[in-house]
Design a protein around this nucleic acid. Structure first.
Length: 176
DNA sequence: GCGACAG
DNA sequence: ATCTTGTCGC
């Protein structure tokens, strides 16, 4: 259980969430270091960011672990935007695993839009966080997708919500 | 003032 | 992120 104190501001997600994420990794290290993952999927961006340093990069630096940013929406940066052209490209993705690079106005490849599962229409936005190539990141994410959101992230989402409901009910349960 | 806005 | 309505497939 953690408490968030910073508000959500687009572009500053790391300042809100990274302390809790680092704490989670630290707790796992102490509880059973043999379970330490070789790579972390982060719900947010890596270098696909206004200042080239999203929450996935922060977490990678602070933990020393390889990280991959997997965002569910395109953060509009360096000329990239979810416009008609972009949606057209996304529409051309055929099979799960198909992707296209996200090249900004600067000429830099900041990430990739991946059709992560066969059924998904909307791509996920993959970007390098730390100590991994974009190509490896795209392959790894695709290999973990049964649905649109990679299973590790999806399970974390589902189970954390369950935990919140459970603890809320626990608090409000009348005492005998 | 207007548009954009990871989660 | 959260909420809500409706549709479709298993």
């Amino acid at each position: 259980m953690v408490t968030l104190d910073a508000p959500y501001i687009a572009g500053f997600l790391a300042f809100r969430e990274v302390p809790s994420l680092v704490e989670a990794v630290k707790r796992l290290q102490e509880k059973d270091s043999s379970l330490m993952p070789q790579v972390l999927f982060v719900d947010g961006n890596g270098v696909l960011h206004h200042r080239g340093f999203g929450v996935a990069c922060h977490l990678g630096i602070l933990t020393g672990l390889p990280t991959i940013g997997v965002a569910k929406n395109l953060l509009q940066v360096d000329g990239l935007e979810n416009n008609e052209s972009h949606r057209g490209q996304a529409k051309e993705l055929q099979m799960g695993g198909d992707f296209f690079y996200l090249k900004g106005t600067s000429g830099n490849v900041l990430g990739a839009a991946l059709k992560s599962s066969q059924k998904s229409v909307k791509p996920v936005y993959i970007s390098v966080g730390h100590k991994i190539s974009l190509e490896a990141a795209v392959k790894l994410v695709h290999s973990c997708c049964k649905y649109r959101v990679p299973e590790p992230t999806r399970q974390a989402d589902i189970r954390s919500r369950e935990f919140c409901v459970k603890t809320t009910n626990e608090k409000q349960k009348p005492q005998d």
